[in-house]
Design a protein around this nucleic acid. Structure first.
Lengths: 220, 220
DNA sequence: TGTAAAATTTAGTTATGCCTAAATATTTTT
DNA sequence: AAAAATATTTAGGCATAACTAAATTTTACA
């Protein structure tokens, strides 16, 4: 059985790989909040298990076996987030931390039962896609909020799930996946976004907007 | 934060203490499936944390702090068992193993939400009492099935939760907590019990009967 | 009571996964 | 292309929690 630490490495590699960019020792270390020297050690281990490919100074790549494990952990995480949200009524800014611990521990059986209870969902409370049992990730073609222009209307597709303060902030504006809003004004010089959500005005800073992805854009 | 291993030691000490008898290094080792030398190490650690009292060759006792942790872990375990059983429909012979892993990992918040969902229950699917938030354990005055006599009728109160084969066996006779049955005959010389459960006859061996506790006994 | 048996502890190892500090390799800059 | 900056690895430690084998302590029995 794979250690929790190893699972976290694979999950992180997958996510960093998704974002584009080379997954170097240093990047991984930063992402996982460990020191580069520690990453070197785990890289050796994962390589010897044939879960990753690695060449010095050229970054890491998941093998198919490694990717399968990464996707299974991510599936666990997102199913758990949605389950905790829907079945236990946990707030959307609380489910990430809980899922982060549970994801390494639940059985296949529990995974399947949650999946069935939820009706085989394809996205979690933050809009992130839930890979299916075969590791197939639903397509999500969304665009960063930062690329919106004055007057455009759109629907929140996905937000970063790991920053609970950010999530509470967005929640205070009722900005959840599925919520439609309209850009009233984008302040010049990389300024904040003034938007209209269901008749209410809200100001969203650039840094926050970077973590919001949107869909279904209309010019109005 | 306390390690999972330490939590398991405290939980085991509590359970062994309940059963009566001195909780010696060797007994603990056997119960936890580790070697006595390993127990010595953990005993030192737990003693230094003031979670147990210990004197060589005289066994271990929980301090109040240690008992509180033990009861919290047991509470988690039993709430989880009942939750998995009721909310996710897991079979009663499957919930123990799942709960065994989850019990160390769930938050107070999740504990409270499960508790509320279940309506603040006082026993798990195997009839074991669920300690409340303050560590108060509901009274359960039940008697081992092995002390029953011919013709007595009673209700299953509690069964050992950790042996899934045993649980499946009992399930095949519909022998769950709350089920009433009548002893038709106790075979002599420590023989098996022939019982009547809802009109069906079943033969329960002594070894199995030792793991069944009953209540509400009537002579018929 | 002395000796054998049983229980427990000590000493030394192992594996995991992290750390720091120092060494080395690569890339970038000048 | 050499020097400087950056990235990565090596070497040596630490903590946890298990193990084995050997020593020691306690208990039990003859």
């Amino acid at each position: 059985m794979l250690s929790q630490a190893a699972e976290d490495y694979l999950k992180s590699i997958y996510k960093l790989q998704e974002k584009g960019g080379k997954v170097s020792t240093g990047v991984l270390a930063e992402f996982l909040n460990v020191k580069p020297a520690s990453v070197t050690g785990m890289i050796k281990k994962l390589k010897s298990m044939k879960l990753i490919k690695y060449e010095r100074y050229h970054g890491v790549t998941l093998t198919n076996a490694g990717k399968a494990i990464a996707l299974e952990v991510i599936r666990h995480h997102r199913l758990l987030e949605l389950y905790l949200f829907k079945a236990l009524g946990m707030p959307w800014d609380g489910v990430h931390d809980e899922a982060e611990k549970l994801e390494h521990v639940i059985s296949e059986d529990m995974e399947e039962r949650m999946d069935a209870y939820l009706g085989y969902p394809t996205s979690d409370p933050h809009g992130s896609p839930i890979p299916d049992k075969n590791g197939v990730v639903p397509k999500t073609a969304s665009i960063p909020m930062t690329s919106l222009q004055d007057g455009q209307s759109c629907v929140v597709a996905e937000v970063n799930d790991s920053d609970s303060a950010l999530l509470r902030h967005l929640g205070s504006f009722n900005l959840y996946p599925g919520t439609r809003f309209r850009v009233i004004e984008v302040a010049p010089f990389e300024g904040p976004f003034t938007i209209d959500v269901a008749g209410q005005q809200a100001v969203i800073g650039r840094e926050v907007a970077k973590h919001i992805f949107v869909d279904d854009i209309h010019d109005t």
